[in-house]
Design a protein around this nucleic acid. Structure first.
Lengths: 136, 136
DNA sequence: TTATCTATATATAATGC
DNA sequence: TGCATTATATATAGATA
């Protein structure tokens, strides 16, 4: 049974989008609640869906108001410093991959050095790491 | 290696609380981002931690402001209707368990009826469903 | 439509560097 | 402190009732 492997894009099918929304909203609210409890932080979430004029909030309208008021008092420039968004995620992922690349390159250099010193070509060749560098 | 089984309560140990905060905040922001994308909803999150004066927000300060403004325009009573919080979670759990209890009771009645009609005591007894009702 | 059921995907606690 | 690993726990897509 193939169950998942969802691409991160707007779900066109109405019923499945709604179903996903319901499940994920519940999960999200639980996560916010857990973070608050475990780490003693003040957190809130507001979700507007197109099916409803009212937003769904955590922890409560009053709680949201209190946090929002705190937030509004802060100058926008200060707020930006701690912004967390998709761009940040992507950047994190990129730097992680870059690190891996660096590590692999070093590994290759070591292998190559080994080959030159001891003529141990077979092992490296087996691992497919010695393809001639194509003219790119 | 025993790895997890965390109770949902404030983590006293400073370093592990901070580590947990970092991980879970990241996960949470990702979840908000995914919900927005998958379901095309307008969502935001604000997290204040004690280690920092600035909150961490999704999707951006401007986005939060926009959503928050929408929220503020709404009368409080309307807001309450769609409140999702821990109380709601608990209520949901309770009603789910209540349903189970109802189902099991019905099952027991059926079993008992069967016994009376056909004298098929053994099966029901094996399943441990025929304990005498205690005076409670 | 809502609820339940599982196979899988994802998140994350503990650990070592 | 932060990052990487990995064993587990949790979330959830898809199917079914």
């Amino acid at each position: 049974m193939t169950r998942k492997k969802v691409k991160l894009a707007y779900i066109n099918n109405d019923s499945s989008r709604k179903a996903t929304y319901k499940k994920r909203k519940k999960g999200l609210m639980k996560k916010v609640s857990e973070l608050s409890t475990l780490c003693g932080v003040d957190a809130c979430a507001i979700i507007y869906n197109p099916y409803d004029t009212q937003p769904e909030v955590y922890p409560s309208p009053a709680g949201v108001h209190r946090i929002v008021t705190k937030f509004k008092k802060m100058p926008e420039i200060e707020q930006s410093k701690k912004m967390v968004n998709q761009e940040t995620f992507l950047k994190q992922k990129i730097s992680k991959v870059s690190e891996q690349v660096k590590k692999l390159k070093k590994e290759n250099r070591d292998k190559e050095m080994n080959r030159l010193l001891y003529g141990n070509l077979s092992e490296a060749a087996m691992e497919g790491r010695l393809e001639p560098s194509k003219s790119s």
